[in-house]
Design a protein around this nucleic acid. Sequence first.
DNA 1: GTGCCATATATACATCATGCATATATGCTG
DNA 2: CAGCATATATGCATGATGTATATATGGCAC
Lengths: 277, 277
Amino acid sequence: MAHRPPPPPARPRRRPPRPPGKPPSGRSRDTEEAFLAGYDLAAFPRPSVTVDVVLLTVDRTVPTSAPRLHAVAYERTEHPDRHKHALPGGFVRLDESLDQAAARILRDKAGLEGLFVEQLYTFGAPQRDPRGRVLTVAYYALVGPERLADLALRSSARVHLVDVPWAGETGGPVDLLAGPGEPLPLAFDHADILGMAVKRLRGKLDYTPVGFQLLPAEFTLRALQDVHEAVRGETVNKDSFRRRMLAGGMLEATGEREPATYHRPAELYRFVKRSSV
Amino acid sequence: MAHRPPPPPARPRRRPPRPPGKPPSGRSRDTEEAFLAGYDLAAFPRPSVTVDVVLLTVDRTVPTSAPRLHAVAYERTEHPDRHKHALPGGFVRLDESLDQAAARILRDKAGLEGLFVEQLYTFGAPQRDPRGRVLTVAYYALVGPERLADLALRSSARVHLVDVPWAGETGGPVDLLAGPGEPLPLAFDHADILGMAVKRLRGKLDYTPVGFQLLPAEFTLRALQDVHEAVRGETVNKDSFRRRMLAGGMLEATGEREPATYHRPAELYRFVKRSSV
DNA sequence: GTGCCATATATACATCATGCATATATGCTG
DNA sequence: CAGCATATATGCATGATGTATATATGGCAC
């Protein structure tokens, strides 16, 4: 996510601070070192900073109902907002990047590595956490159904349906559902974060290959369409969808066919990085 | 930008901290207050947090050359990266939201209020600032040419051309130009921030009415096309552009015409919020 | 094995957006 | 008044998309 490799450490040696007022001319290494040694970042008040991750998946295991978008939430055991559900998150360490913090949280709290992870938005309303000023840099991550099944087995995580009540792109707050029609209140401003994650995913679906992150390595065109419909919250035209996907140059036929179906089995495809453009 | 009004202050009164380990059962107001009073956010290390703003405009005052995208940068007078140019920015205060901090910086450093402002991305590489761990929540803002002229007159700001060397959407770092072909090095990771701002603006141009933020209240279709071309860095088909804009339902003809032109004057339009959808 | 079923896959056609070309309109300049 | 540069309008070819129809294929009931 960072666009440049971090510069070399260049940790300045300690020097006695130089009195301000007359900035020394020239740009020699010494004067910059002296400036940095005398600089006190703690003079400005600092907020706490956390990273929260919206972990999304599409459940296609229930063949009877339309596939739905899911998010992972954990019940809080501590105040504030005790017993409400919260996104996995944690404080940012001073020696890690924000991306690394998001990856660490996914690893520690969900046991997942190597997922598609992208920064979403930073939430910083002054009163969003009653413990004090806490900013959160929100991320979202996508995981295929086969790896999420691991999570449900392994951890005590409560995996909950995301039922998105808006078909448009307004991007308002979204609460989870504990069951059909049973809202699950989210802690803090996590409903805002979840809503923005769904909005972002919807916006990226048509223009980036992000949909494949929600599928196993090989999949049918119907499965890909299910994912798109679950994310968008509405059905799409089947023929147009097939043509568009096949014309996009991002799919490669495996030559194999879907196993064990009730009906004619569909061909399996895999995602390939687009060659052109 | 916040999706919910902030909750009421609910500042807990001070109480003696409660020993941890046995969390009190129940959810009464007292036990939550006690928990909050005993909670020490400072136990976790905190980074410094700044807000930097990419202030963009399109200069159409030079009729001979193609309009260009501009950004506002100030020469640094202090270490580190002294004499390099930096985006306007400042530390976030603990009693203001991030959006408010961005608005304050625009007001204090550029004397501008009421602009289109949107959060962009949060940059947090551990070594991005040699003074210590400093995150920056980057914003971008758009301003029309008539208000930017004020800025150039009023302040000592150095307004510089953004010459975007990539026509695609890769979103890599972008340096400013002091003149034609004369690169202007940016401080810290501000070239990354600028590159992401241009990328975001390009992505939003076709799907949101963001282009109008770079024009005065009344404008010709040609001026709107100039803005789009400056942002995209490439020319667009004139007829298609006109049809698309007029069909979008976001333009309203004023009935008046462009004053004082060399040639046939074009009709002036104004932006209206789209009625449908 | 035969026929039915549900879905995949292929083909054809209407519709719409867009790129491109051409024609006309208009205000200024000399 | 003629010419110029641009705006504005119209027509047509092309490609993408929505819709409909026809054919293919594997499992299942019998």
